[in-house]
């Protein structure tokens, strides 16, 4: 778009105050990025978070429902669970991978869900900050602990 330099005010309103020798001052577009503009911190984080909830959700439906079926329904339900049962299952890399994937996806899915809940209901900035700090700390701790347990499991511990 070319800017009309001969007159900022049309002939209807009267004679222009500006001409070629006396140009109007340049007004910056209000949203133009300049050197003084703070660096943009906008990312697509929330979009990826939204997508992650759906993708991990589909995988978790399979992982968790089979987990419940094995642990609580088949072969005597909860009655058969014990150290020997865990040792038997974690002897197989398949179930180790299953449980590891389930741990990571469920913890991240749950943590992101709780982050949304905190954002919705905790209104004071301080409360939000501390609740989310607590959430992230507990999440990192639990994920690392669970991962360590799966990788260092020793069936002959005693």
């Amino acid at each position: 778009m070319s800017i009309e330099t001969t007159g900022a005010v049309g002939p209807v309103e009267g004679v222009s105050r500006y001409d070629v020798d006396n140009p109007a001052p340049v007004i910056e577009p209000p949203r133009a990025r300049t050197k003084k503009t703070p660096k943009s911190t906008r990312t697509n984080f929330e979009l990826y978070g939204w997508l992650f909830m759906r993708l991990s959700g589909i995988v978790l439906v399979v992982l968790v429902l089979f987990h419940l079926l094995i642990q609580l329904v088949l072969d005597g339900g909860v009655s058969k669970i014990g150290f020997a049962f865990v040792a038997g299952r974690w002897a197989s890399p398949f179930w180790q991978t299953w449980d590891l994937l389930m741990l990571w996806l469920a913890m991240l899915h749950g943590a992101n869900g709780l982050r949304t809940v905190i954002n919705d209901y905790a209104e004071r900035p301080n409360t939000r900050f501390w609740l989310k700090n607590l959430l992230y700390t507990a999440t990192v701790f639990t994920v690392l602990l669970g991962t360590l347990v799966i990788f260092t499991f020793d069936p002959n511990i005693r």
Binding site: F83, V86, A138, L148, V149, I157
Partner: peptide
């Protein structure tokens, strides 16, 4: 529940 469940499962590293 998931927090509690990871913690109770972690006891397999303590003793049977």
């Amino acid at each position: 529940f998931l927090f509690v469940h990871v913690l109770d499962t972690a006891l397999v590293r303590v003793s049977p």
